[in-house]
Simulated assay, not measured.
Amino acid sequence: MNGTHEGRERLLLVDGMALLFRAYFATSFTGSIRRTSAGIPVNGVHGFVRYFLDAVKRFGPTHVICCWDMGSTTFRTEQFSDYKGNRPDAPDDLKPQFDLVKEVVDSFGIPNVGIVGYEADDCIGTLARLHSGAADVFVLTGDHDMLQLVNERVTVVIMKKGYGNYAVYTPSFLLEERNLTPAQIIDLKGLMGDTSDNYPGVKGIGEKTALKLMQEYGTIENILDNLPQLSKSIRAKIEADLDMLHLSRDLATIRCDVPLELALDQCLWKLNRSTVETKFDELEFGSLVKMIG
Rank of each mutant, 00 (worst) to 15 (best):
V105N: 02
T195D: 11
G162H: 09
L188W: 05
G85C: 05
L20Y: 03
N86W: 07
D143T: 12
E9G: 15
R249Y: 09
V49Q: 00
P111F: 03
D257M: 07
I292S: 06
I234C: 09
G44R: 00
P259G: 04
F59A: 10
F59K: 09
L211Y: 10
Q266E: 15
P41M: 07
A135S: 14
V156A: 06
D265N: 14
D194R: 05
R50G: 03
N43Q: 01
D106R: 11
F75W: 14
A120Y: 02
Y163M: 15
D99M: 11
L127M: 08
L149F: 06
I254N: 03
D194A: 09
D89N: 14
G218Q: 07
I205G: 04
K279Q: 10
S287L: 05
G164T: 10
L140Y: 08
E177L: 04
M244V: 12
N198V: 03
L264A: 10
S287I: 06
G218A: 08
I40L: 14
G190W: 02
K203Q: 09
L19A: 04
L227R: 11
A128E: 00
E176W: 08
T141V: 14
G44I: 01
P182H: 05
I33C: 06
L247I: 14
L224Q: 05
G206M: 13
L100E: 01
V137M: 06
D257P: 11
K270M: 09
I115K: 01
Y169K: 03
T195S: 15
T253V: 11
T219G: 06
T36M: 11
I186D: 04
V137R: 01
A236T: 15
F285G: 01
T170N: 06
M244Q: 15
F80T: 04
C267H: 04
E78G: 03
G286E: 11
K161A: 14
T126Y: 01
T219K: 08
V45A: 08
R10G: 06
E221L: 12
I185D: 02
W269M: 14
V113H: 00
Y217M: 10
L260S: 03
S248G: 12
Y169D: 00
C267N: 08
S274A: 12
R235E: 14
K102N: 03
V42W: 00
I292Q: 04
L100K: 01
R22C: 07
Y217S: 07
S231M: 10
L262W: 00
G47T: 02
I186C: 12
A135D: 05
S32C: 03
D187W: 09
I40K: 12
V104A: 02
E261T: 13
K57G: 13
T30P: 00
I110H: 00
M70C: 13
R22P: 06
T141W: 06
S287R: 11
C267I: 06
D99T: 13
D281I: 00
V154R: 00
L242G: 08
D265C: 10
L227D: 13
V150C: 08
L188K: 09
G39M: 12
D243W: 06
D145P: 10
K57M: 08
M214I: 15
R178Q: 12
A18H: 07
P259R: 04
S132E: 11
A183W: 05
L100S: 01
F52E: 02
T195E: 10
R249G: 15
